[in-house]
Design a protein around this nucleic acid. Structure first.
Length: 915
RNA sequence: GCGGAUAUGGUGUAAUUGGUAGCCACGUCAGACUUAGGAUCUGAUGCCGAAAGGCGUGGGGGUUCGAGUCCCUUUAUCCGCACCA
């Protein structure tokens, strides 16, 4: 009987579903293991060939862990809210709920064909009210908490109110938008609106008027991670800066913990580095400079610097165009120029601003500050090279030691005073943090490191500032002016935002059929009659921030996750997904989880212990070459003789770069009467690695591969392709090799006539050695996530076994293979007489005793070059080996009579004779 | 500019972590069995060379008895951040 993968796979997929083979429950008698995939956004294009790569890897690992005795939680669901469905709805009028439902059905069908071991009873969808009830719930909890920096954790907002009523802001160290100074009396005399305004300054989910990334084309604001190079990540539309009232999450409160927590995680160094950079911690000082205001008063202008040592070199100051005091600091004679400058910089898009970073621009405000150390009056400028969002939006400029300040000073003819030896300030600034201090009074003669320390102390002693840590991380903008997302459980009482009560959740998304913004530019929810709640909805990352917790207890209506389920499943042991979520989802999820940890709803502070980033799958395009002006196509190797035009050809009608000529003629009408110039009777196509997209005709649908080769072949081939973390083009050129392997494995259970032919004969030591070598290698490789080499190990195993039909070998081998090729393994497992699923079989252990060697064939090198081999017992000591090897005639030959200078022996590895 | 990664045959890749570079496949070539094969099996296949042998892991240098692996330097490609004070 032939290996009929279509029949086998369909039958077992049905059986698994009917028997509930992959259903899991809490089982305190077994250790848990949680394997999670990043759930997909169900797009209209269907599952592409890159998705399964990570899913297959995690499925192999899940099945392996399960076979090792773990109770494995391995769920799947859909990240179903989001922009594309809504954009599609605006274009076609189809309701996002309908298209999403349809796309999910398609995804499920595709996933099922690959034979994953998901427990589908735990499926979740972020757009399901039963699910997003808990997204809204978490938002309300964040709204009702603030962050106590002294305790380093979130606390109920009532405790803040109590503190304010008793002590004002005295002794309060809480994460906030701006530092407030209030007395208890002031707080107590405030009305509700006033108090709420104060509380919004502290709440972890808060509403504020801030500069946001506004994308006019999408009609919504975007978070920083959703913008790249001044364009929206989704769609690639221009993004501008705009001041708007928005909901935000105070993720910055957790900056330090998000940074520190990375150390305990088993993530790749590059991913940790991306998160570290995104958080962007820098140590420095906050220093106040006295400013002589045009109205005669003196104000203290706060700046942040990482180079307090260079303060003697400060010759001017710069504030951002958005700086609060800019208007007050501008003198009458300068007002026109400053106003024009601010207007111009506002008009420039983010993109232009990035493109013009080298161009120096700015304007003098007319005001002066005083350098607290030199006592000199220094001018204050405005320039957009200073960012409103970082630090205080104002800097002390040290042109001699900062290249941007240097360019600015050169442009405006300002003083440049060197304070660190080592550079030539007539040419460029000297930015390096090393050298001896000069022109710096009490710091003279110190080196930079010592000067920094001394200056911190001096600044604090004089009471003009203090040490401060600054972060690049910004609070996450949490509202989107869109329809297809979670509604905020918030209504307004005048300007006061009021939360719904928990018992009123979920606040369901009202049905509607027009998803564009209103004529007044309000979000689509403004069209809904009687909608008295917040008009914007939550962003995509809201629903994905705690989904891994919901899988633990997906049907619970009383809690996000019950304490029992939380304490059993704890957190994700292995998370597999793309690196593109480094600064988005993976950041928000950690924050969200830390908050739930602080508030006691979950028992682990980090959600994802080990994380593996599968590489992206690129497209591998194929080309044909049309002779210009004809309908003749010339094969790749012969095209040099012709003037040709390169045309993309559908990769699905090309195999191993050989074009299927008939399929090509049928592909498009204009090629129906195409002629070919062949080489060796074949048409060879050119190829290139490009982005996988419809327009390049290089999209490969996993369904087609399954149809042609079977799911087991697809699974093994995707693993065989190369290391899982590596990005690579999708290329089916080698898939035959893997398919052949499975056919060979199948035939080992059959005789020449295709009849069942398993033998009970004892295995030879050689066969046992091959088996146990393979077991050891495969186990090791799975643990290391090195699946490409484990597939190779299986192939080597069959090569070594040759013709072998022994149960003693094939039975453990079947179990060993089952995580990779579950269908064929299940079929053979049952054929061997087992009743229960192969995934419940104990994973084979290797037995060292079969692997022991008595002798070793030493490669003998002379001066590092292999000259001959010599077999010795492994029990021989290096001393004995050294003495014996020189007596060998081969050694004598290479030594040419001379005595060796030295002999290096590495037992079990090598003998090297130095002449 | 800063940070991270990668570079090995015609192709995808492997290398016990400093010990015979190229495992396992694809492709190619030769052969066997076949009415036939896009089936199956066997063998060869880094480069130069008739052979002996030599040369080979992006380039250059170093450490070592011995380097794909460690150090220095340089080039190319990819990714992240970027006027972050």
């Amino acid at each position: 009987m032939e290996y009929d993968f279509r029949e086998i796979e369909a039958r077992w997929q049905k059986e698994w579903r009917e028997r509930g083979t992959y259903k899991v429950d809490i089982d305190p008698s077994r250790p848990k293991f949680y394997v999670l995939d990043m759930f997909p956004y169900p797009s209209g294009a269907g599952l592409h060939v890159g998705h399964p790569l990570g899913y297959i890897a995690s499925d192999i690992y899940s099945r392996y862990k399960r076979s090792c005795g773990y109770n494995v939680l391995h769920p799947m669901g859909y990240d179903a809210f989001g922009l594309p469905a809504e954009q599609y709805a605006i274009q076609t009028g189809q309701h996002p709920a309908v298209t999403t439902e349809h796309n999910i059905a398609r995804y499920r069908e595709q996933l099922d064909k690959i034979g994953f071991s998901y427990d589908w009873d735990r499926e979740i969808r972020t757009c399901d009210p039963k699910y997003y009830k808990w997204t809204q719930w978490a938002f309300l909890k964040m709204f009702a908490h603030y962050y106590d920096r002294t305790l380093g954790k979130a606390r109920p907002i009532e405790e803040l109110e109590k503190h304010l009523s008793e002590h004002g802001t005295e002794g309060l160290d809480a994460a906030c938008t701006t530092e407030l100074h209030l007395t208890a009396a002031e707080w107590n005399s405030m009305d509700e609106a006033g108090r709420e305004k104060v509380l919004q300054n502290y709440r972890l989910a808060y509403r504020a008027d801030t500069m946001v990334n506004w994308c006019p084309k999408l009609g919504t604001v975007l978070a920083n991670d959703e913008v790249r190079d001044g364009l929206s990540v989704r769609g690639g539309y221009p993004v501008e800066q705009k001041r708007m009232k928005q909901w935000l999450l105070r993720i910055t409160a957790y900056a330090e913990r998000l940074l520190k927590g990375l150390d305990s995680l088993e993530w790749s160094d590059s991913l940790k580095e991306i998160q570290r950079n995104w958080i962007g911690r820098s140590e420095g000082a906050q220093i106040f400079f006295d400013v002589e205001m045009p109205d005669g008063s003196v104000r203290k202008l706060e700046i942040f610097t990482t180079r307090p040592d260079t303060i003697f070199g400060v010759t001017f100051m710069v504030v951002a165009p958005e700086h609060e005091w800019l208007g007050d600091m501008t003198t009458a004679d300068r007002r026109a120029e400053v106003t024009e400058y601010v207007e111009n910089s506002k008009k420039r898009s983010e993109r232009e601003r990035i493109a013009e970073t080298k161009r120096v621009s700015g304007a003098f405000t007319g005001s002066y500050a005083v350098n607290p150390f030199t006592g000199k009056r220094i001018p204050i400028y405005v320039s957009d090279y200073v960012l409103a969002g970082y630090g205080t939006g104002a800097i002390m400029a040290v042109p001699a030691h900062d290249s941007r300040d240097y360019a600015f000073a050169r442009h405006f003819g300002l003083d440049i005073v060197p304070v660190v030896e080592g550079g030539d300030i007539s040419q460029a600034s000297y930015d390096a943090k090393q050298g001896r201090m000069i022109n710096s009074g009490m710091l003279d003669g110190l080196d930079v490191k010592e000067a920094v320390v001394k200056m911190f102390a001096e600044v604090e002693r004089r009471g003009i500032g203090k040490r401060l840590v600054n972060y690049r991380l910004r609070d996450a903008i949490f509202s989107r002016q869109r329809y297809w997302g979670e509604p905020f459980p918030i209504y307004y009482d005048g300007d006061i935002a009021r939360p719904l009560d928990e018992s009123e959740l979920p606040l369901t998304l009202p049905p509607m059929d027009n998803f564009g913004p209103t004529e007044q530019g309000e979000p689509p929810l403004a069209r809904v009659k009687g909608w008295r709640y917040e008009l914007s909805t939550m962003p995509g990352f809201a629903g994905s921030s705690a989904y891994y917790l919901r899988y633990m207890d997906p049907h619970n209506d009383n809690a996000l996750v019950s304490p029992e389920a939380d304490r059993y499943w704890r957190n994700v042991d292995l998370y597999v997904g793309g690196i593109e979520h480094a600064t988005g989802h993976l950041m928000y999820s950690r924050f969200w989880n830390m908050f739930l940890y602080d508030t006691g709803y979950v028992c682990e502070s980090e959600p994802f212990l080990k994380l593996v980033n599968q590489g992206m799958i690129q497209g591998r395009s194929n080309f044909v070459y049309r002779v210009v002006g004809t309908n003749k196509f010339v094969s790749l190797g012969l095209k040099e003789g012709y003037e040709t035009q390169e045309i993309h050809v559908d990769v699905n009608i090309v195999k191993n770069d050989i074009l299927d000529l008939d399929a090509f003629r049928k592909w498009r009408p204009e090629f129906a009467d195409a002629e070919f110039i062949l080489e060796n009777g074949q048409y060879v196509c050119g190829w290139a690695v490009e982005k996988m997209s419809k327009s390049m005709y290089n999209v490969v649908n996993p369904d087609l591969v399954v149809e042609q080769y079977g799911a087991d072949t697809l699974r093994m081939y995707e693993m065989f392709l190369g290391p899982i973390e590596q990005s690579k083009p999708w290329d089916t050129n080698g898939i035959d090799g893997v398919h052949k392997f499975l056919k060979r494995f199948w035939r080992m259970f059959r005789d020449r006539n295709g009849e069942w032919a398993l033998s009970e004969e004892k295995a030879t030591p050689k066969e046992l050695k091959t088996l146990h070598k393979t077991i050891r290698k495969v186990r090791e490789d799975i643990e290391n996530f090195s699946f490409n080499t484990s597939v190779a190990a299986f192939m080597i195993c069959l090569n070594e076994l040759g013709e072998c039909h022994k149960r003693e070998i094939l039975e453990p081998l079947t179990v060993l293979l089952s995580p990779f090729a579950p269908h064929i393994a299940e079929e053979l497992w049952h054929a061997m007489g087992h009743e229960t699923s192969v995934c419940n079989a104990r994973y084979p252990e290797f037995d060292e005793s079969h692997l022991v060697e008595n002798t070793f064939e030493y490669p003998v090198m002379v001066n590092g070059k292999l000259r001959f081999k010599q077999e010795y017992p492994l029990t021989m000591t290096p001393q004995q080996l050294q003495e014996d090897i020189v007596t060998r005639p081969e050694a004598q030959k290479w030594l040419e009579g001379a005595a060796p200078r030295k002999i290096v022996v590495v037992p079990g590895k090598i003998i090297n004779i130095v002449k």
